[in-house]
């Protein structure tokens, strides 16, 4: 399954763009997405942390991603 993933903050620098396509084989969980992205972009692992958001909500590791979901990588936030 090919997912489009939005990037913000430093994730945009890491992906060299504001969105990226990710091909997942097998069950498309948040964890599977993270593993795939970290293999492709090892710099993600150097971040203090990062979350995955699905349809504008923070997602859990075991959540399953659907083709039409809006998926985003949320590096450590720093508003205020």
């Amino acid at each position: 399954m090919k997912l489009n993933v939005l990037a913000f903050g430093i994730a945009k620098d890491i992906f060299s763009g504001s969105a990226i396509d990710v091909e997942l084989t097998g069950e498309a969980t948040v964890t599977a997405l993270r593993i795939s992205l970290e293999n492709q972009f090892p710099r993600l692992k150097q971040l203090a942390s990062y979350m995955v958001a699905v349809n504008n909500e923070y997602a859990s590791a075991e959540d399953v991603l659907q083709l039409r979901d809006e998926i985003a990588i949320i590096p450590p936030v720093s508003g205020g």
Partner: peptide
């Protein structure tokens, strides 16, 4: 919790706050 990010621009570079 709010997904807002701040980048500090210095004379000799820039950094995403709290990223690392």
């Amino acid at each position: 919790t709010v997904p807002i990010w701040k980048r500090e621009i210095f004379e000799d570079g820039e950094v995403w706050v709290a990223a690392h």
